[in-house]
Design a protein around this nucleic acid. Structure first.
Lengths: 161, 161
DNA sequence: GAAATATGTCAATAGAACTGACATATTCAG
DNA sequence: CTGAATATGTCAGTTCTATTGACATATTTC
C-alpha cells in the first residue's frame, strides 16, 4: 500500500546551473495541513449561521479592530470592495456588525461589532485557540512565542495595521 | 490614523462562567497572514500557466508522492472527486500529470508527474522555499525544526500518507 | 468650484467547491 | 461463477468567493 514513496534526497546536482537548494518540503506541507485544519474547524462552526469563511474573516478583523474603515479592511483582507460588499451587507443586515460615520471624516463608514457579532467572533476564536492550546501542550516551553515569531517572519514584513 | 485599536487585556472576567482563557489572537492572526502571503506568491506564478490554486495543490502532491491513487489524493486534499475532476483533467490534458493503471489493482489510476509537471512543481516549491529562507534568516538557529514541529502539532494528528 | 477620496452598487464572469445521480471496470467473497 | 463492493469517471445543477469594469453619491481638500 506504500507505492506512494517520496522523491527524496536531492540527486547531487549533476550539472552546475546555479545550484538551488532542495525546497523545504517539510515546511510547505506542514503549513498547508496546519491551515487546512485550522480553518476547517471554524468553517464547520460558521455553517450553523449560514456564514462562510469570508464572513468570518470580516467579522474577525472588525471585532479585533473596532472602528476600522472599509478601506483599511480591504487592505487587510487583500480583496476588492465588490467582493467585500456582499459579505459585509449580510453581516450588517443580520446585525453582527454596524456602521457609524467617521467623526473626523464623515465619508468614512467605520465598522463596529454588535454584541452578537462580538460573541460570535469570540466563540470562533476560542475554538481556534483550543486547537493551539492542544498543540502547545505537546511542545516545549516557549513554543508559542517561537511559533508566533516564525509565522510573522513568513508573512511579508510590512504588516501595517 | 490609529482609531483601529486592539480589544486588549482580558477584562478580569466579571462573573464566573467557566473562565475560558483569552484567545490566542497573536497566533490566529499570524497564521492567517502567513498563509495568505505564502499562497499569494504561488498564485501569481500559476497565473502564467492559467492554473489556479487548486491545480497547484494537485500537482504538488502528485509530484511529492508519485504513484498516488485518486482516492489517496482526495483524502489528502479533503475535497470531493467532482471537485478534483475538472482540475485533474486540465492537468492531464496539458500533460503536467499522467495516469497509469495500478499493476496490483487495475481499477486504480495512479498519478505521476510528467517532466513538465515536475519542473513546474519544483519551480513553485523553490519560490515558496525562498520565502521560508528569508524568514529563517531573521530567526535564531533551530527555528526551522521548531516551526515545522509547531505547524505539525496544529494540524490534526493523523497525517496518513 | 473642481479634483480627489471613501464608499456603495450594478452587471457580468471565473474559480473552486458542493450534492446527487448514474456508468464502467475490476476485484473479492461466497 | 455470480453478485456485492470498490475505484474511478462523468453529467447536471448549485453555492460561495472572488474578479473586472462602470458608474453614482457624499465629502473633503486644494
Amino acid at each position: 500500500m506504500d507505492q506512494a514513496l517520496q522523491r527524496q534526497s536531492p540527486p547531487p546536482v549533476s550539472a552546475c546551473e546555479k545550484i538551488e537548494p532542495e525546497p523545504m518540503f517539510d515546511l510547505i506541507e506542514a503549513l498547508f495541513f496546519a491551515y487546512r485544519d485550522f480553518v476547517g474547524e471554524a468553517d464547520r462552526l460558521l455553517l450553523r449561521y449560514n456564514f462562510g469563511r469570508a464572513h468570518h474573516r470580516v467579522l474577525y478583523f472588525v471585532d479585533r479592530r473596532p472602528g476600522l474603515s472599509v478601506a483599511e479592511l480591504l487592505d487587510l483582507l487583500k480583496i476588492t470592495k465588490q467582493s467585500l460588499s456582499r459579505v459585509l451587507k449580510e453581516l450588517l443586515d443580520q446585525t453582527y456588525i454596524e456602521q457609524r460615520p467617521g467623526q473626523a471624516d464623515r465619508r468614512q463608514r467605520l465598522l463596529f461589532p454588535t454584541e452578537a457579532g462580538h460573541a460570535l467572533a469570540l466563540e470562533i476564536a476560542q475554538v481556534q485557540s483550543r486547537r493551539f492550546a492542544r498543540a502547545l501542550e505537546k511542545l516545549p516551553a516557549g513554543a508559542r512565542a517561537q511559533g508566533a515569531a516564525f509565522l510573522a517572519a513568513i508573512s511579508d514584513a510590512r504588516e501595517d495595521a
